[in-house]
């Protein structure tokens, strides 16, 4: 046993990684879950074994959870208020007569 606390940290002190998988070419990477791993490379290998046992992906991203900056999950969050009243950003806001084609 080494005296270095970091070197002998138990598994729970392995950092948490969030895992994103691209299902197939042409699709975005999508968050699928998380796992613990001692380093980036092991995280990628664990992610492959854990989340793509049945050809669920062609590409995996792993990122340390601590590096993710997140907004509050609350749907009433004022953070999202700026987009709440801008209905004119949607195509359905504009009335176009039915006889105008291709619009």
């Amino acid at each position: 046993m080494s005296g270095d606390a970091a070197a002998v940290s138990p598994r729970s002190q392995w950092p948490l990684y969030e895992v994103f998988v691209r299902g197939k070419r042409g699709l975005n990477h999508v968050h699928v879950g998380s796992l613990h791993a001692p380093d980036d490379e092991m995280a990628l290998r664990h992610a492959r074994d854990l989340y793509t046992r049945r050809n669920e992906g062609v590409s995996i991203w792993v990122v340390r959870a601590e590096y993710i900056t997140a907004s509050s999950p609350d749907e009433k969050d004022p953070f999202f208020a700026p987009s709440g009243d801008k209905v004119y950003r949607h195509p359905t806001f504009y009335e176009i007569p039915d006889n105008v084609p291709h619009m």
Partner: peptide, 29 residues
Amino acid sequence: GEWVREAAAAYAAKHTGGRTGPDRHKSTY
């Protein structure tokens, strides 16, 4: 499996300059 976990952590610490510290596993959740 304890020695495996320890070895992996030691390897990671060696190759990342000790980035894998006790306070670095906190969930965003």
